[in-house]
Nucleic acid binder design. Structure first.
Lengths: 204, 204
DNA sequence: GCCTTAATGGAATGAAAGTTCCATTAGAAT
DNA sequence: ATTCTAATGGAACTTTCATTCCATTAAGGC
């Protein structure tokens, strides 16, 4: 119900408030890693953050609010890509970055939990969608440049290529729940590229 | 805690027991569709099934147990494929079948909920994994036959091709949360096939 | 350093879900 | 039809989480 209180009056983001937020998001992530979204309660988060329960309710409102804010924080932390070299190198860098995130105990669990949260809460869904759509957009740019350089057929849909690189990794993570290895990441890049070179990603 | 009581003595799967199970699984699916796994409680399921709360606890133990049993039921209901025609036709049939399931209000929500449940419960995870691995195995056979017919390069990994066809659809469903259309399904088939023909699915 | 008030924390309250006890119902065998 | 007992259901009990009230703390302006 409560939106984070950005009142019209004076705001005090200094010292304590920031410290509380950091502790709460840390506790949120720990909770997600251990019990998933389903087991995330305001109660436990407050306790583990060493923060009053009231504060957590006032500032985040619900478990979904916590997850959404955590997602925002992760988005800000994530480093931007470096579009140097060939498409293959760029896409491999992308795929390996995704693979590392998914295979990482902490980050992988967190992402799974956020995806799970999105299935039953619109706020979390919004945070997730905007995060990934922006990410896709960024990397699509790399592909678009490659098209301009003539490495890929004219009209190739960069966003779809980027999706095609990530999709099998997330499929393994969420659906078949198999480990996601570097080999999987590299195979995914090879396959997406092979299809792209064959013109299978050219917009109709 | 309780496993479904398959005691050593006489079992009575007749009439009432089967009716209760059907009602409970129906209520479970309705609950998942409306509130997701996160909002699935034994309490509500029992109430909506018109069944005693005690019975639900005894036979299924937890929300995850309900989901796992529902998954088993869906697996049994699912029709088998018909491997006639070219690989392209077969894979398209597969992709469209998946697309229809994901786009369907009821089935799509259910699958999302099961995937979410699997992120925080090993029982649900097991049900999900075995369901999809078997499904993949079945369709991989179709691809293997195509390899024997010479439609695809020798050594092509059928399981990986099948995964590649489904992955983008599930990616859209769970990660970017975009609608999953027939066009997506057909594009996915084209791309997987293009890569397969280029030998990108040949085992190393 | 002092004052104002945004922000926090502890404790009490209320609602909802999980869990158990025991009487009742209805398959299945005779 | 009768009997046996697996299976079920109602209700009480316990725990846990969500929500609110009000006193306390500390950030930011003077």
């Amino acid at each position: 119900m409560d939106q984070p209180s950005r009142s019209a009056g004076t705001v005090r983001p200094g010292g304590r408030t920031a410290r509380v937020r950091a502790a709460v998001l840390e506790a949120t992530q720990n909770g997600l890693v251990e019990h998933g979204f389903h087991g995330l309660t305001m109660d436990q988060v407050a306790a583990r953050a060493g923060v009053g329960k009231t504060t957590v309710y006032r500032r985040w409102g619900s478990p979904a609010g916590l997850v959404a804010d955590l997602m925002t924080e992760l988005a800000n932390q994530s480093s931007s890509h470096t579009d140097m070299g060939t498409v293959e190198e760029d896409l491999r860098a992308n795929a390996l970055s995704v693979q590392r995130a998914l295979a990482d105990e902490r980050l992988g669990s967190t992402l799974q939990a956020v995806i799970a949260a999105a299935t039953c809460d619109e706020q979390a869904a919004q945070a997730l969608r905007s995060f990934y759509l922006r990410r896709i957009e960024e990397w699509a740019h790399v592909v678009d440049l490659a098209v301009k350089r003539g490495e890929l057929p004219e009209g190739t849909d960069g966003r779809e290529v980027v999706r095609a690189v990530s999709a099998p990794l997330y499929y393994r993570l969420m659906v078949t729940r198999e480990p996601v290895t570097r080999e999987d990441a590299e195979a995914s890049v090879s396959r997406a590229l092979a299809a792209a070179r064959a013109g299978a990603f050219v917009r109709p």
